[in-house]
Design a protein around this nucleic acid. Structure first.
Lengths: 342, 342
DNA sequence: TTGTAGGCGTTATCAC
DNA sequence: GTGATAACGCCTACAA
């Protein structure tokens, strides 16, 4: 065998294909990327060589030369939650339909990890990035802008923001639920929320509850707040904290459905009846809300629609097809039996 | 400005850093990759330049030159299921601890998509890949081997397989549960399962039920099988199919917990009491199993441990640290009140 | 310890 | 329609 015999065991390259098909590497490249720019006969010849060699293009080399990757990244707080998973699935489906592949990372709700992952995604050449929630170090937005990587922020709707958002108004949505709760006679309210300091969805929802109470003339001191990580067990523990307080609330408004079903389960374990002894509400309307017993009163969020819309916006943004605008996703109240009159 | 003025708006490169720090690109590269191979003084100088420019290495260029990416890929059937999410989270945590980043893709339980994603991961230069389940076209294994990309297969334990596996024995685990079910007096059994043809976990579990029945001298005709996609609603629909059959079974053994809670919810909606009128079992022991009402009898699978172990094996495999061997993850029965004596 | 220079596999700009 | 050939940004012998 001569030195430049292509038939050794390293993975085949464009050059190998070109040699076998007796054309130039440029032609092979064209066959793969814009087949119509090459004559039928040579195309079949090249494609045959591709198949014979089991050639697969080297993505990194391609990205390096082409300066785009047909890849969009997404950073979600966690995969261990149907909420994000559902939206992400729709996001991916929509992307796939346009031939772009998705790169996912999860930040575990940690700002430092998220920042790291943003840099990773950028250095990997993501053509665009999906982020959850608006609140983060301004430097990150500057960085992204400098790098020329377009982003879309989901889960919030904010026409004021200087980035594109797709989502709903967390304040209004939770306020609507709180209005309903109050209209049913509840005065002493407890809430289980994520740390609102670094989570704008959580802080807006909390603000919604406060606004509703204030409007109804209920003292802010009648709201007791427990912060908790998201999780079923965590919801249960938070409920225990609430019950340990001197005055028992008549309703517990939870930051999401996962916390809520955890709270319900624990309440029942402790011998309380839901909703007779204590009402519970959630947020998101994921599948467990329906099968919970009692079924959960919650705010319905069309996650799949949001994911799909985010993908559409991002694709258009990357292609600079046209000016995109913020898009509002409508939410609605889902009243089920975990909430009853006081 | 001269033509080679670095101070324009394209993103900075190694060369820019080198110029600013007045060293060669090789030195900059070394500073970043093996800092100890360069003297303190020049290192600080270089690092300062890196910061000033906001330089971030181009991942694709690095991968192209270095021929490895410090990246491991994982393809899971779906993200919309806590089962995989939980294992994947642990997988990622373990990888992160070793400085390797994770690339995730989800195949939607479709063999064709999975194959495509495997090729994508390979062409992106993944140093190793995690796959779920052993059953797939042998050509894929050949391809992976030719490309020199090591893999680990999770969710199954099979010492016979010619690839590394980490998981449990689906047959034995489900048989143990079926043994228990039968010991409680059940004779007419129904099962809701994923299509066993392309899902070796499902087919092994089904085989486990059959073996237990056979050992107990129960006719195979006393098993009624309903195939279903995984999902809460799907579980409910499958239960309806079961109830529509002439003879009602006394127990429904589900392929996973998600199907099981869906079946329970639907049964209750239809006025049946669980377990008095019909018992239900699951598989996996995810969080909803505990909060289901009644709580779900199921097979406990330590998903996080499995994910962590998979990461460890893959890292060692990539580094060729030492010979890896198949590792067995122990499962256990979780008996809760959704199963009662016949 | 540091610098020089060739190469990694593609794409894209030119000619022809 | 096709073929040379120069980038793309980084790593890594090899030399100094």
């Amino acid at each position: 065998m001569t030195t430049d015999d292509p038939n050794n065991d390293r993975t085949p390259t464009l050059a190998d294909v070109a040699r076998l098909a007796k054309v130039s590497t440029a032609t092979v490249s064209r066959c793969l990327n814009s087949p119509d720019r090459v004559i039928e006969k040579t195309r079949t010849k090249v494609l045959a060589a591709v198949r014979d060699l089991g050639y697969a293009p080297n993505f990194n080399a391609r990205a390096l030369a082409a300066k785009h990757t047909n890849t969009i990244g997404a950073i979600i707080p966690t995969m261990e939650n149907a909420i994000f998973a559902r939206a992400l699935q729709a996001f991916q489906e929509e992307l796939g339909g346009s031939g772009v592949t998705l790169l996912v990372a999860s930040s575990s709700y940690r700002a430092d990890l998220e920042e790291e992952q943003i840099r990773t995604l950028v250095s990997r050449g993501a053509d665009g990035i999906l982020l959850i929630g608006y609140h983060r170090d301004p430097k990150i937005y500057e960085f992204l802008q400098r790098q020329g990587v377009p982003i879309v922020v989901a889960w919030v709707f904010d026409p004021q923001a200087d980035v594109l958002t797709v989502g709903f108004d967390n304040f209004t949505a939770m306020k609507a639920l709180a209005d309903k709760v109050i209209s049913m006679g509840h005065r002493r309210i407890a809430t289980i929320t994520a740390n609102p300091e670094y989570n704008d969805r959580a802080s807006e929802r909390l603000r919604g509850i406060r606004a509703a109470m204030s409007e109804a003339g209920i003292s802010a001191t009648d709201l007791s707040i427990v912060e908790s990580a998201y999780g079923i067990d965590e919801g249960g523990k938070a409920l225990e904290q609430i019950l340990a307080q001197p005055v028992r609330p008549s309703v517990v408004m939870c930051g999401n459905d996962v916390l809520a079903v955890g709270a319900i389960a624990r309440a029942k374990e402790l011998g309380l009846r839901v909703p007779e002894d204590i009402s519970v509400t959630g947020f998101d309307d994921i599948e467990i809300a329906k099968i919970s017993s009692p079924p959960l009163t919650t705010v319905h969020v069309p996650h799949r629609r949001m994911g799909k819309e985010a993908a559409r916006m991002l694709i258009n943004l990357v292609n600079a097809t046209k000016d995109q605008k913020n898009t509002l996703i409508e939410t609605s109240l889902k009243i089920r039996s975990s909430l009853s009159k006081r």
